[in-house]
Design a binder for these strands. Structure first.
Lengths: 202, 202, 202, 202
DNA sequence: TATGAATGAGTCTTCATTCAT
DNA sequence: AATGAATGAAGACTCATTCAT
């Protein structure tokens, strides 16, 4: 099944934006990587920035949709946090370039579109904030500074995109579980709790 | 105390490289920010890349020197890790731009200089690796995957540079201590240990 | 017959490089002379140096090909030298700019490409060296210093490019013959020899 | 005897202008080669062009003065031509850089100064033209095209500056004599004539 | 005498983008 | 759908020169 050209352009952009940065990637680089002429490129994209926005939105939307779906009927805060961590780690390990682009290139966006992308990111992060807040409120998490903790965990998990390699010795699922353990310890939740037990079924 | 021009250029670069990225910063931006003409700029720097390298090296060297000094006569692995975390967090909170530049812009360096900068970074990270490994060997840390744990902690602490604001409610020293607690929990060290006790004096 | 743009650029470059020198010719000069914008110029050339190399190679290749063809089945050294001189003079009179560029601008080439251009030039000059050496060996030339003589003759003939004008009173063929006579006298060949006779058929 | 600074600058310029061309030589190059700062350079020269003009004028004046002195009381055209050739060859062998600069860089001069330099050059070349014309008039030279012959000889002799090396096997005096022989043959003067005899005393 | 600082105009080259075909 | 041609603006950097010290 041949790769549709539009998709080829997107993949080229993901690769280059992640590896060389948005400003470090030229239209010619994109054209070469897409095996297209620079002029043809413009049949499959709007501007260079449109391409960037498209990549960012898809990535964030995927994250948001997946998380929303997974958390749909989960009440227990520990389980919710556990699921968020695992999902986040897995996503960043599997789409390291897309997530790194979201992580690095937001400041290059023009104001209007930046706001909307940040809105999307905030929606996603609110899921984390809520999970932590709920846990604290329910008394299952004991952390003096929930906001800080949330940021610390997010950064830790996001960092996976900067070093994970599928050739590493630790299988991705175990890695994700390991991160979840660290996270639960960080919020002071007993990791031998039901949350852990429930996770066995995943 | 008038700021020497060379220093003014460096600060301009730190600001712009951190906020707009290396490739997103033009020579004109640097000149404007330094209150110099583009031609004059070149009296105070070699190339744009030289400026970047200078910033990176200073930052990493500071980190390395400080850490080396602090760990000089500390034997206990828990205390060492605690010190590393606090120092790292403080450095990233106080020099967020410099550290973000190190974090983001290494790939834009030309190969020769990149190697040397990476060497410096690796020297610093080895301090972390050693602390973790020693703790595991000594039986005070219990972590199934020391390498992964080290990366997770580093990313978590480095992330501080991306969100910390001195206007936040949590004083920096408490923030650093909080991170140290999370880190020790993450490696499975009992946080009521001597390490914690010793840290009270800091 | 409209002149193809690539050719227009080449001609502009030949004119300017010859008249103002490579370093004395700016990209703007080339653009103006080619009736193109500076950016458009780069559709038709690589770098300024590429353009120079192209001009040099074409010129030397033409010289080499023509000479090789003309000498193909000529045995007599005097006739060979005579043909070389006439061909060289004619070429330098007809392509004075191209040959002057080859003559003046080789030192500006970057090392790698310079070597290859010099190689081409040496191949051509070897035809002269061989002709002189053969004549000396056969006893038809009497010159104490064949190497010096070759250089003297080459410089003399090359100089034509620096002063010849088609508006001069002497027809080019006669000029070339005149030079050939001087050359044969210089190597001590009797100019009433068969060489002279044979040349009538040209 | 320490080299006076002004002279050091001049020598640096001679070297660089000859090797890299006037436009290929930057003020910084001159400063480095002179072991001076660029600003200091301007204590010892006017503009870059002034330096060039100075070099050219000195070279041409030397040539003109020497030739005038040598020809002062020589009547015989063959001897005069012989002397001119030898002197020209020797000068170009001994001052190859200065003469090459005169040869290559006249077109870069601004119109006013160019005219005066060309005037100097023409004065010198007139000595050649006169020698040839006198020889033809006196019947000792037989050349169908005196003007062309003069140019051919001049170019031939000037070319020495482009290849001569003091490490070559042929002593300079012999080289000069050899060129004189070729020249006299070229104008159809019997080289076993009095001219040759007279030259033994040189 | 000597130079660090300064600069407007210039260098070559690439930028992202449009458009006619 | 695809692209060669075209370009104004910008990229990093150097130019020759001046001037205050």
């Amino acid at each position: 099944m041949a790769l549709d050209t539009r998709e080829r352009v997107r993949r080229a952009a993901v690769k280059l934006f992640a590896d060389k940065g948005f400003h470090g990637t030229g239209i010619r680089d994109l054209a070469t990587e897409s095996q297209l002429s620079t002029a043809s490129l413009y049949h499959y994209m709007g501007s260079k920035e449109d391409l960037l926005v498209d990549i960012m939105r898809r990535c964030l939307q995927t994250l948001l949709d997946t998380a929303t779906a997974e958390l749909a009927d989960v009440e227990d805060p520990a389980t919710r946090l556990r699921k968020l961590v695992k999902l986040h780690v897995r996503a960043h390990a599997r789409m390291p370039r897309e997530t790194r682009i979201v992580d690095h290139e937001i400041p290059v966006l023009s104001p209007a579109v930046r706001r909307s992308v940040i809105g999307l990111r905030d929606s996603y992060e609110r899921l984390w904030a809520d999970a932590v807040a709920d846990g604290v409120e329910a008394g299952v998490f004991t952390t003096a500074h929930p906001g800080v903790t949330r940021l610390a965990l997010l950064e830790m998990c996001t960092g996976v995109a900067r070093w994970y390699s599928p050739r590493g010795s630790l299988p991705l699922d175990e890695l994700a579980s390991h991160y979840a353990d660290v996270a639960l310890r960080a919020v002071g939740a007993c990791s031998q709790s039901a949350a852990e037990g429930q996770s066995r079924g995943e």
